[in-house]
Computed example of a mutant assay.
Amino acid sequence: MTAETEFHRSLSARALRAFKLGAQSLPTRKDGLVVASFGRAGSTLVYDALAEGMARHRFGGQSDTALRIVKDGVFDLGAQPLRPGVVYKTHDYPDILAGRSKLRAFFLFGSAVDAALSVHAQKEARSEAWVREHFEHLRRPYRYDELLKEDVLGFRDQCVAWMGFEEIPVLCLRYEGLWENVETISEFCGLDVRLPERRARTPKQVDPELLATVQEVYGPIDDDLAKLPDCFTAAPEYGARMQGSTTSPDTEGTR
């Protein structure tokens, strides 16, 4: 056990949070960064890489303590201050960010079919409680039983909202194009961003009947996503291109 780990364990959760918030408030010229996605799109990979770059910039290295300071999960973007020099991960919608300064965002997108299949599998792989919480994080009512009937997780609504949002700078990135756009990512946030070595995702065995059902519901979203560039700055035209005809009327994420 390192001295750093021992230090963390010696602090109460409240004291550790107070220490973290105090350190996050140290002056920095770097904007706060928000990493958003609808899941299965590389958001954790990008979140970790951005945090490591931020830690190196602010504290000269990526120690456990430095990473704890610059990383934060925030499922409700309006629930707490979003500080400069901190990297946040969320599934929330962007509208609450209108008018904010010293803040920029990344929206990661991938296959809606893969994302839906992943959520479908998590009820058995993890628990129903995990799936309920995932619905909550995505600002949707719990409708797991209808997951294979319509876009109940709001994947299209997420794309429309983030890809068309101009109130703060938003860089939209397709998972498959991340490694070809590392330089753009670095320039966008002003950090030396280093992605891990690219690894092919392991294909999952999916029941053909289940796959066909999911593709019928979520395939049209993937078809529209396929028409977009791998990397672009959010603008109304991109949100409009993702409108489609299946946007769900029950979005909780629009405030």
Rank of each mutant, 00 (worst) to 15 (best):
L148D: 11
L11K: 13
L138H: 15
G177A: 12
Y238P: 10
T202A: 13
F165L: 03
F106R: 03
A13M: 06
V35P: 10
F19M: 12
G239A: 05
E6D: 12
G32T: 06
E136T: 11
A23D: 06
F106W: 10
P220A: 10
F75K: 02
F188I: 04
V182Q: 15
E150K: 08
A234K: 06
Q215T: 10
T254F: 09
D230C: 06
L67D: 10
A125W: 11
D72K: 13
A200M: 09
K20H: 04
S186K: 11
S37H: 08
V74W: 01
I69W: 10
A51W: 04
E187L: 12
A240W: 00
K102R: 14
R104Y: 00
A15S: 10
Y218K: 03
S43I: 09
R17T: 08
G22A: 15
K123S: 07
L26V: 08
A51M: 07
D92F: 00
P27S: 14
W179T: 03
R104D: 00
E237I: 01
V131H: 07
A212I: 06
D72C: 06
F59S: 09
R68S: 09
G253E: 06
T90C: 01
Q205F: 06
C231G: 07
I221A: 07
I221P: 03
E166C: 10
R194D: 12
L147P: 01
Q215M: 11
A41P: 02
E166K: 13
T2H: 06
V113N: 12
R199G: 02
R143W: 10
S111P: 00
A79G: 06
S25Y: 05
V217L: 01
L173Q: 08
V193R: 02
G219R: 10
G53N: 13
L225E: 06
D151Q: 08
E197Q: 15
F188E: 07
F135T: 04
T202Y: 00
S25I: 03
T233S: 04
P229E: 04
P84H: 02
N181H: 15
E216I: 07
F155D: 04
R56E: 15
L148Y: 03
E166G: 04
K149F: 01
E183C: 02
D145K: 08
E52I: 11
K149C: 02
R194K: 15
D230M: 05
R241C: 02
L138D: 02
A112Q: 07
F232L: 05
G219D: 14
H57E: 15
G154L: 09
G219L: 13
E237Y: 00
R40M: 13
C159H: 03
S25T: 05
S37W: 09
T184D: 12
L103E: 00
